[in-house]
Design a protein around this nucleic acid. Structure first.
Lengths: 344, 344
DNA sequence: ATTTAGCACTCGCATAGAAAGAGTGCTAAC
DNA sequence: GTTAGCACTCTTTCTATGCGAGTGCTAAAT
């Protein structure tokens, strides 16, 4: 339904606007090297494209800017599958080769590097540990009244929680408790720990020990912690460099949202699909109406466990960002899948 | 050197400007109920105060605004020692009574509540664990190649790190290692662990085991982690509500700084002094020239271990914030001192 | 039937001037 | 020492004006 010429012009207008942030006029467009139509022809086509809803004007006699429908079409049909510079590939790949400082630091790094590479804001939802299984449970007494409950998973993740010991409990009893717990619960996925904790051990414990409830409760609580991954945001202030956010009111809307973790979680819930692009009001959040969000989830095996995302103005370098996010999410999937499968 | 009347006028001008963010003129000032001088008199005194450097004009015929010297004098000599509403006291006090979710969450809470109470940005440097002593060291093997090193302190803090096991190591050897480590290092302050690790155990280990270096190195690294406290920042976007930050450029300066942890650490290094106020360029950071920072450290016993701070515009409600920060830092000192002393 | 040149028209933006308003400094009177 | 009065300054707001970039439409050219 769109002629080749219209596609061509639409693409050039959007490319230009993404670069310059200025409405594109027919004269300037016609001056470009690879454009061989006269301004008048272009004006006609522009009028057509506007009528079809792909372009907009900021005022009656301004140049054209892409509408959301325009961006959408651009993303869906006009995007040249970009490729990454080798240097970028190397940078990205290096993030995960060095896991010395733990997975969490590595994920943190992803956020930082993504925002630096794109000069937009990056959001990274760290892997959730649902599937990870209990390797070892421990209770370390601190003094007469307190102790630390520790859960180590088979992926090396450590979760811990301070709790008050029941009065009059013997060191031997604690040891017995720990033994029962490990006996019954080793290998249980974290997600099921909460339920199984009581079912599997309460009966047995009751027979040997008093006051076991507090202890069980602590382990239960500690197990909830990592069921959902941690959020990392990089380059929060990058939005301030965008000319369309010269206005503090707009900045506030977006910044406030970035401070609200619960909102962000909604945006980056892991899914199986590949790269997803949400343009302006396609996002549910009111605050995002001037922004676009590009997300891609990464997986362990077939199970999506986390998400990386880039938040920028609607006038975003879609091509570059999509390529980047796609590449990185696959890289993360590969590394994590290998890691998880060899260690279990 | 300042007459009573000058003090009075200076105070009223600063109070007014803090409220309104507008330059204060002689006419408006004279209209106030508790001012019994004519506009002309006030103009004369304003001129005097300006000559002495306490006031400034934004342009030749504008009203007066306080200079940094003016704010400084105001903070040092004119501040009425405010008192907190009982409701605020209760709120603050409640933060630390509920430590169920661990110290870290409690400190996080302080940041959030401080920023909500003041509508400025809060910075909280969590307590450092230098003085905390090793309670228990553990090695949990995950699979043939990897294990987790765990350090538990006598305050219930848990530090952990993933590492690669040396090849061909026996479970029995690991157990022997852990025994030696705990034997020799229990009670050692975290800060000294790095040094003592080798001195105390290397000799002994060498006698019994091969490949112990990797393991020691991991514990050494893990011990460095918590020597300096964690940073929490609350209400990062509150600065956007201040009329003097209508300009995105100014916002960017401050926001960028808030993203750089190393800069923030400099600002809130714990000290023994009570509440400290840094106004505008009194702060070393270029980015802070339009801001004031109010800090107070909290201690365990006599040792300052962390800091709470409020970052706002120079036109800050000094009285309220100083009172708040003073109260809260003492409250935290009390709670932590009690906690630390009973548990060691 | 397309494409393009030409032209009148619109709108934003920058510049300049004018008027209003808030505030000052100074002088002279109280 | 205090204050009323007044000229002056500077910002802010509004209006007018011209310029430039761009459009839409019509008619000619291809």
């Amino acid at each position: 339904m769109l002629t080749d010429r219209q596609l061509f012009i639409l693409q050039i207008i959007i490319d230009d606007f993404i670069r310059s942030a200025q409405p594109v006029g027919s004269n300037n467009l016609a001056k470009k090297e690879d454009v061989s139509y006269s301004p008048a022809t272009i004006r006609n086509e522009m009028a057509n494209l506007e009528e079809m809803g792909f372009l907009e004007k900021t005022h009656t006699s301004s140049g054209r800017i892409p509408s959301e429908k325009g961006y959408r079409y651009y993303v869906d049909h006009l995007l040249a599958p970009g490729s990454l510079a080798r240097s970028e590939q190397t940078v990205i790949h290096s993030i995960f080769t060095d896991r010395q400082n733990g997975l969490e630091k590595a994920v943190q790094n992803v956020a930082t590097i993504l925002s630096e590479l794109t000069s937009y804001t990056s959001i990274v939802l760290g892997p959730k540990f649902n599937d990870h299984k209990v390797k070892k449970l421990q209770i370390i007494p601190i003094d007469r009244e307190t102790a630390v409950a520790i859960i180590v998973t088979d992926t090396g993740h450590v979760e811990n929680r301070l709790f008050s010991l029941p009065e009059r409990i013997e060191a031997a009893d604690i040891e017995k408790m720990v033994n029962i717990l490990n006996d019954r619960l080793a290998g249980v996925p974290l997600l099921e720990l909460h339920g199984k904790l009581y079912k599997e051990t309460a009966e047995l414990m009751k027979r040997h020990l008093q006051n076991y409830e507090t202890v069980l409760k602590m382990f239960a609580e500690a197990a909830i912690g990592p069921t959902t991954g941690k959020l990392f945001i990089g380059g929060k202030t990058n939005i301030l460099n965008q000319p369309e956010f010269r206005d503090v009111e707009k900045v506030r809307l977006v910044m406030n949202m970035m401070e609200k973790e619960s909102d962000i979680y909604e945006l980056v819930r892991p899914t199986k699909a590949g790269v997803r692009v949400k343009i302006g009001t396609e996002n549910a959040e009111q605050a995002m109406e001037d922004c676009s969000l590009i997300t891609a989830s990464y997986s362990v095996g077939d199970e999506p466990v986390g998400t990386i995302a880039i938040l920028g103005p609607k006038r975003m370098e879609y091509s570059r960002v999509i390529t980047l996010v796609d590449f990185l999410s696959h890289d993360m999937t590969n590394v994590l899948t290998r890691l998880y499968n060899t260690s279990s």
